[in-house]
Amino acid sequence: MSQDGVNKGRRTLLLGATAAVGAVGAGFVAVPFVKSWVPSERAKAAGAPAKVDISKIEPGAMLTAEWRGKPVYIARRTQEMLDNLPGLAERLKDPENTVKEQQPAYADNITRSRKPELIILLGVCTHLGCAPKYHAEVKPEPFDANWKGGWFCPCHGSRFDLSGRVFKGSPAAKNLEVPPYMFESDGVVVIGVDEEKA
C-alpha cells in the first residue's frame, strides 16, 4: 500500500470523526436553545383551562374556582334574582355592557352569561383588584339600602349587581369581567375556552 493511500484513509477517518463530534456538540448546544422556546410547565398551567364541577351549586349559592391564578365566581341565580336585573339599569354605570372586551360576545346580554341562571365572573374588582364579597340576599345593606343582591368590594366600596355590572357611585369604572368559558356537560364548565374558539 502506498504512503498516499494510508494518508487518505486516515484523513477520511479523522474528518468523519471530527464531523461526528461536531454534530454531537452542536446538538448539546441546540437542545437548551430550542427548549427555551417551549413554555415551562408553570407557564402552561398559568394559561391552562380550568374544569369546574357546578352540579352541586344550589340556587342562590356561589362557588369560587381558580383560573390563571385569579378567583372565578360561579353563582346559580334564582328566577327572582333574574327578574330584578332589568329594574337596575338606571342605577348602573354601564347597563348595556359597552366595554366589549369585558365579556365574550355570547355574554353580551342582560344576564352576561350563556345560561341565564349561571353567572361566571372573574372575582377581581375592576377598581384596584380586590376580591368583592357575594351578598345574594335582597335586603337593605349598610352599603346600599335598596340592595337587590350582587357583589360588594370591601376595599373601596364598589358595588356590582348579580350580572357583575357596576353601580353608579362606585370607584370601579367597569363591570366585572366575564372570562371565556364553555359547558363540557350540564354539570361541568371549562373556564378559559369557549366553543367558538375551541
Rank of each mutant, 00 (worst) to 15 (best):
D4V: 07
G9R: 13
R10E: 03
T12D: 11
L13Q: 08
L13D: 04
L15Y: 08
L15K: 13
A17F: 14
A17I: 15
A20H: 05
V21M: 14
A23W: 09
A23E: 02
V24T: 14
A26K: 04
A26L: 15
G27T: 12
G27N: 09
F28I: 10
V29T: 12
A30F: 12
A30L: 15
F33N: 02
F33S: 04
F33G: 03
S36L: 06
V38N: 13
V38G: 07
A43G: 01
A43M: 09
K44H: 00
A45D: 12
G47Y: 04
K51P: 03
D53P: 02
I54P: 07
I54G: 10
K56A: 15
I57G: 08
E58V: 11
E58W: 02
L63N: 06
E66P: 05
R68D: 13
P71W: 10
V72I: 15
I74A: 00
I74R: 00
R76T: 01
R77P: 08
Q79K: 15
M81H: 15
L82P: 06
N84Y: 12
L85G: 07
L88N: 01
A89T: 14
Q102D: 08
Q103E: 05
Y106Q: 10
N109Y: 03
S113I: 06
K115H: 06
P116S: 08
P116K: 12
E117T: 10
C125W: 06
H127I: 10
G129V: 07
G129F: 07
G129C: 09
C130F: 06
P132R: 07
P132W: 05
K133T: 14
Y134V: 10
Y134K: 07
A136N: 12
P140T: 04
E141H: 11
N146E: 15
G150E: 09
F152S: 10
P154E: 14
R159I: 05
F160Q: 09
L162E: 10
S163H: 13
K168W: 04
S170G: 10
S170C: 12
A172L: 01
N175E: 00
L176R: 00
L176C: 04
E177H: 13
V178F: 06
P179I: 01
P179F: 01
P179W: 01
P180Y: 04
M182P: 00
M182S: 05
F183A: 03
G187P: 01
V188F: 11
V188Q: 07
I191H: 04
I191K: 06
I191A: 03
I191E: 05
G192K: 01
G192D: 03
V193P: 00
D194N: 15
D194P: 02
K197Y: 14
A198H: 09
